[in-house]
Design a protein around this nucleic acid. Sequence first.
DNA 1: AAGCCGAGCGAAAACGTTTTCGTGTTAAAA
DNA 2: TTTTAACACGAAAACGTTTTCGCTCGGCTT
Lengths: 346, 346
Amino acid sequence: MKRKITLKQIARELDVSISTVSKALRNSIEISEDTREKVQAFAKLYNYRPNNIALSLKNRKTKTIGVIIPEIVHHFFAQVIRGIELVANKRGYNVIVGLSNESFDKEVINMQMLANGSIDGFILSIAKETLQQQDYHHFNETISQGMPIVMFDRVVNDIICDKVIIDDLRGSKNAVTKLLENGCKQVAIITTKDYVSVGKLRTQGYLEALDDFKMSANSNLILKVDDELLSEDHLDSLELEIEQLFNRNSKIDGIFAVNELYAIIAMKVARKLGLKIPNDIQFIGFTDGVLSKHATPSLTTVGQHGQEMGEKAADLLIDKLEHEEEEEHFQTIIIETNLIERESTK
Amino acid sequence: MKRKITLKQIARELDVSISTVSKALRNSIEISEDTREKVQAFAKLYNYRPNNIALSLKNRKTKTIGVIIPEIVHHFFAQVIRGIELVANKRGYNVIVGLSNESFDKEVINMQMLANGSIDGFILSIAKETLQQQDYHHFNETISQGMPIVMFDRVVNDIICDKVIIDDLRGSKNAVTKLLENGCKQVAIITTKDYVSVGKLRTQGYLEALDDFKMSANSNLILKVDDELLSEDHLDSLELEIEQLFNRNSKIDGIFAVNELYAIIAMKVARKLGLKIPNDIQFIGFTDGVLSKHATPSLTTVGQHGQEMGEKAADLLIDKLEHEEEEEHFQTIIIETNLIERESTK
DNA sequence: AAGCCGAGCGAAAACGTTTTCGTGTTAAAA
DNA sequence: TTTTAACACGAAAACGTTTTCGCTCGGCTT
């Protein structure tokens, strides 16, 4: 078990100085061709690679970006990571991930672990708990220490930094419009509590679409699900809530849900009540995940392009890292959604 | 934008030496209580944190583990990462991920990027292309340089290292046995080509189960899908292949698939052919993902416990990292599967 | 008065690089 | 023959830590 070889060892073996070895390997003209070849041959033989940590220390940059997301077992976030990793790798960066697990404390701890020199910048999506508490001091502190942050999807206006978001409002408005165009008269929405910014925006899109069609919103058609319900065990009670929604409104003929799962479960309930999809009732979800694609009937959905978001976020961050001198200016990139039509709509 | 403060700056401000500051912060008794308090107060005020990179260089360990997986937009792998991240964090380690994207070259490059000091050890699952080419030199090189590797799920016997796998053979045997016990007379299997070790083992489990029931295998009932078919576009041709499977064997009354997706698609085909699930035909899949849970009918499946695999792998690696002196000995941990019964079986 | 001891602190090395600035040798120019 | 310039290389600093080893100074013991 031979440890990795260093410049010093090469220098000793070849009876030259460390500087000479370093220069020879970087093909400096300062060094004679003879020596260069000798050193390079030796280095190749022993498979020399510069130690990354030493380089990071010297250059004061790590070529690593930190990603903090609320959850990884989630199609959308996984796609984003894939996008980030793709461009990071292409541009010579590594990616180090931290999971906040939707918890404020873990988010803070994770950021502290990474902000002490391990990375050059952050890409992150805010934990639900953080959004609820509205405590953003850790972001501001990080930024004020000169470490750039790019936020995606779950962002917040109070923080001044680059952002990559999707047009939640437009996406949901389009979806609901589609339902209305398809002849739905009673469109319900299944959404989340308002503190999740995307839930709020998507609800707003729903309202605007109704408005465009001169229809008035009916609070009986709006189901705001408590997020705890998503935690696996509570799926049954979610099902119950949806069933009650149907009971309150026997005429529902269209449902827009702010995520895949809500839509799938709603379809299940509808089927149980004997409704035919899409003839009696039509469905549109949000986020084009594996469920939408393979459900029966397959679900029409608003495509969110997670991978593209990741790519853009990484490009944004790395651009900033590599042009520090430039004057500060922050952008917000909006990724367009698209409606992917499948069997759950006419 | 104030840069992070260093020992040197504190020393200068307080007019003491760097060593004194360092010792004071670590509460060394060498330093008078007065000085200690003064230094600590100052450090707290300026929110001093030791630079991780400098520590890594000095200690020759990074407290970071590298994870290389073939794909992240995949429920199983995401679960594993979650498990890894969980225990890594708990034990004070960071996690840096690389995606091989099932490509040999990317796997090699990723490992090289990380093996130069950035991490203390690897956790990985082998890319399909690597398995096909059977070229494992990069693993052996890494190991021989003193960097421990823990492999999970897709492992290979040629490499001597710690491993975490599931009992693929037993898992699939149990599943098929279940089908046979439930009265199935013609059980088909949808599996992958043999070079994917897990596919091979799962096929073997199928055969053994048949054998136990004194039934002979019928090659007409074994569908070995070419893996390319999984790449989204080719789903239709997969559907076609499955349809042909049904056509060749009109009496099929049970199907075991080596992953979720195959099972879901097979169910779809069966339904199209007018078969009732689970009365006319029963299904069992492998890997308990989101599809199994939310399909209609929900899919009975072999639970793979990805998160637990990740946790065990991380513990194994960190144990090794923190007891280097110990004599070398490698373990293979087998995670038991369990059959999760749902609506697709009687 | 000479020696000793402990308390409190600093200098320096080490981790592995890159880079700036010498410095010595040799060949060409004056 | 002397000055100069090019060439080839080495010493050392720097990045930010931790830790070992000395050093100084005061007070204490003989």
